[in-house]
Nucleic acid binder design. Structure first.
Length: 422
DNA sequence: TCTGGGGTCCTAGGACCC
DNA sequence: TCTGGGGTCCTAGGACCC
């Protein structure tokens, strides 16, 4: 039988912060999204207070004051570095690893013995070497492994490791009968309410739903989920992350923006970041889309949103060209008199640089010159810090930049911000 | 006052072709 | 008067994930 493990870090962002600020241990802590907007990570103490995921922070101000909830701005540089350390350690426990997100990965443990003990070793090693607590779920399909992980987290007597394969079919079904159908990976809010209206409330009920009918009513995705719940492994581990088919860079502003000149700076900044990511995966983009919008939550102020997809004459990853085209798009969709909340840039029709189509009109010398310049730019920014060299149009003052009220140090990635041991 | 950012996949419908 | 059937490609939008 297949044995797939899903290892998931507990309250990952909060755990990262606690690692370098041990005084946060045992206290209610949240980490907020960009602009200190929403809650994206909660300590157990905060979950126990009934705070749900993604709730806007300003709605919690009263509760936070009463219970002394500590709110931190997100520090993605720190989280990404610690994530890499966790993933590298975990990769030693199996020849097949899929890094699924910043805080979780799948490992193929098929054919290995005494998996509960093996998983406990993984846990204690990660805790000791990196300092991050994790839970492990093991089962015969990815979807079941996700559920096993959920059980490992919620039911304390499993001691953070739950192996469905070690249970009898009756034991497993008894467990699934008490898990809500919305906990299943791939069953979101909409499907949950539809399923509930059909009388399917528990995971066990979904598992037993006739496969033919589920396809007619919910499509192939749900059909696959039901098969996976029945132990049939339909989703293989994706060990190499394929290059992105689209690259998005967008941010909400720290305050409403009305001037075209500020929007232009932001568009240049985001197109620059997107172009860096594009070159990072050795690709070219054939099109670039720009969008702007006002704040949809401010129902009383006039609303406007617009986007424009601009095809490129030939695929490129040159920051200067991408910025120029993005700017022309912005100028076409900009309307004065609105308070803008967000602009974004999306690169599309992405192909590998090696697959660049050749045409009669190729200016090979210009392409080489561009590639050399971009490589130099990237090398300088890698070595001296991101943003060391930028286009002037991105601006220096950046009044539109996002708010980050309470961000921690770059404890592991900047020499002058390293943690000090006494 | 204050509501994130970055992705993927699937489906339906329209345009177009022979 | 009578107006087919089958295919592809593209786009927008929905649903979902973390």
């Amino acid at each position: 039988m297949r044995a797939i493990a899903l290892i998931d870090c507990n309250n990952f962002y909060v755990s990262c912060e606690r690692l370098f600020q041990p005084h946060l241990e045992g206290k209610p802590v949240v980490v907020l999204s960009n602009n200190d907007g929403c809650v994206v990570s909660r300590s157990q103490e905060v979950k126990d207070l009934g705070v749900i995921m993604a709730v806007p922070w300003f709605q919690l101000k009263d509760l936070a004051q009463r219970h002394g909830i500590i709110a931190l701005s997100s520090n993605y540089t720190l989280y990404a570095d610690l994530s890499n350390r966790v993933m590298r350690l975990l990769s030693q426990y199996s020849p097949n690893q899929e890094v699924y997100s910043i805080d979780e990965c799948f490992l193929d443990l098929t054919g290995m013995n005494d998996l509960t003990r093996y998983a406990q070793t993984m846990r204690s090693t990660i805790k000791q070497c990196v300092g991050i607590p994790v839970c492990v779920g093991i089962a015969s399909s990815k979807t079941l492994a996700k559920l096993a992980n959920h059980v490992a987290k919620k039911q304390k007597h499993f001691d953070s490791v739950c192996d469905f394969n070690a249970m009898t079919a009756q034991e497993l079904d008894a467990l699934l009968a008490h898990i809500e159908v919305g906990e299943v990976w791939g069953v979101g809010r909409r499907s949950t309410s539809r399923l509930q209206m059909m009388g399917i409330n528990s995971v066990l009920e979904l598992k037993r739903y006739a496969a033919g009918r589920i396809r007619a009513e919910f499509g192939v995705v749900m059909e696959r989920i039901v098969a996976e719940l029945n132990g049939e492994c339909c989703l293989e581990l994706d060990e190499v992350t394929p290059p992105r088919q689209q690259i998005i860079c967008s941010r909400s502003f720290g305050m409403p923006v009305t001037q075209l000149s500020d929007l232009e700076q932001a568009v240049i900044a985001y197109a620059t970041r997107a172009a860096e990511k594009l070159r990072g995966q050795h690709s070219l983009a054939g099109g670039i889309q720009v969008y702007i919008r006002t704040n949809p939550h401010k129902e009383k102020s006039p609303q406007y949103q617009q986007s424009l997809l601009l095809p490129l004459f030939e695929p490129t990853n040159d920051t200067r060209l991408l910025c120029r085209v993005a700017l022309s798009g912005l100028q076409q969709i900009y309307r004065s008199g609105y308070q803008y909340q967000k602009v974004g840039v999306m690169l599309t029709e992405i192909i590998a640089t090696a697959a660049r189509p050749r045409t009669l009109f190729d200016d090979v010398a210009a392409q080489q010159k561009s590639a050399a310049l971009m490589e130099t730019l990237d090398r300088i920014n890698r070595r001296m810090g991101s943003g060391t060299m930028q286009l002037l149009g991105e601006g220096v003052r950046k009044s539109w930049a996002m708010r980050r009220g309470n961000v921690s140090q770059h404890y592991t990635t900047e020499w002058d911000e390293l943690a000090v041991a006494r």
